[in-house]
Design a protein around this nucleic acid. Structure first.
Lengths: 214, 214
DNA sequence: CCTACCGATCGGTAGG
DNA sequence: CCTACCGATCGGTAGG
């Protein structure tokens, strides 16, 4: 392996990562050749192989990097959730939360990543599982943790906060996400926002203890 | 093209369809060779090509055949829905419906088909779109139609029955289906049934007009 | 040379 | 995307 502190190596690796991320998300694993990656990175194939053992290693590395963003997002969400909910009333804050989440999830990049990982799940079963754990599952856990806090405050009524969080998530993004992944077109912002709003209303109907909030 | 009424041709085609369905669902498009299909069908590759122009045509044909089952299922569902709901009370019939639907959707074969179509959505965009239209969308439309009837009977309270149907569908199968497609393992029957039951409860909380039903 | 079928092989591609 | 090359794979085809 080349020395990682050589500025030329650093630049090459960054160029490969950027090129490979673009191409894998856009054309899939089989649809992306190592020639394509080298060309878009502006280097030769030989240089790519100087830094990455093989195509599978490169692919795994790319996906791992992308999943790191999911972790960051969950951490940020946890902080926002704790702060925002305390500030306003339940209904308003859950609508804000739902809308932000839905818009963050039903995006072209996320849909492309999902399609890629699902399509390669046979060849790379660990990546699909890791994505589920780091993205949907982690987000649901953060939501559940926030809901637990709300239950303690007496503004939410739920015995199984994990389940409530699952229902919240799939109520607000289930249909648009499923459609986007299968049909390939991301729904309009209007559609996403409306779906999120109505999803939150249904969530509140079950989990808001005070009928006046609903 | 060979004559379709020759019994040898009929048998060859049936063998190809069966073999290709198995292999495409199990190994994906690229992972299935025409040699594999011919071998599993017990004929030579040349005979496969006597009946199907090329691999893409065969794949499209297979998927079309599989989607025909989705249509049949929706038709059956429509009949059952009309009959069952009238028989028992709302809560019981929606729980029955939800459990049956969830178990029908979160099955290994359906998950395999979804993974296949999502993975090949780049190469065959029309197939993913057609699946969405024939399976999730059609099922939701049938549900919406049933809910509309219930609204007229006064046992359900919904202004947008299409949205109510979407929420019903993704409340009961969202999490297990997403997990199954990404992780590759179908959840236990217990998990599916519990998720469906809790989903129906949340649905009822919003859409059952009489608090006594909830 | 009607369809059906087989053994063998070619042209093109892509990872390395 | 410098060309060239390898070992391997695979979709589609020609001769008999």
């Amino acid at each position: 392996m080349p020395r990682g502190d050589d500025p030329r190596v650093v630049r090459s690796r960054a160029a490969v990562v950027e090129a490979a991320t673009t191409l894998f998300l856009q054309k899939g694993y089989a649809g992306t050749t190592m020639e394509d990656v080298a060309a878009l990175a502006g280097i030769t194939k030989r240089t790519v192989y100087n830094n990455y053992t093989d195509k599978e290693t490169l692919f795994t590395q790319i996906v791992t990097d992308v999943l790191a963003f999911a972790d960051e997002y969950a951490v940020g969400l946890r902080a926002e959730l704790a702060a925002d909910i305390a500030a306003a009333d339940l209904r308003t804050s859950l609508h804000d939360l739902g809308r932000r989440l839905a818009l963050a999830i039903v995006r072209a990049e996320v849909v492309a990543l999902r399609r890629l990982l699902i399509g390669e799940a046979r060849a790379f079963p660990a990546l699909g599982a890791r994505y589920f754990d780091r993205a949907p599952n982690q987000m649901i856990e953060v939501l559940a943790s926030g809901f637990r806090h709300l239950v303690q405050l007496g503004v939410l009524r739920a015995t199984d906060t994990r389940r409530a969080a699952e229902q919240f998530a799939y109520l607000i993004v289930g249909e648009p996400l499923d459609r986007a992944v299968l049909v390939g077109t991301v729904p309009t912002r209007e559609h996403i926002v409306t779906c999120a709003r109505e999803g939150v209303e249904t969530f509140l109907a079950r989990y808001a203890p005070d009928p006046r909030i609903r």
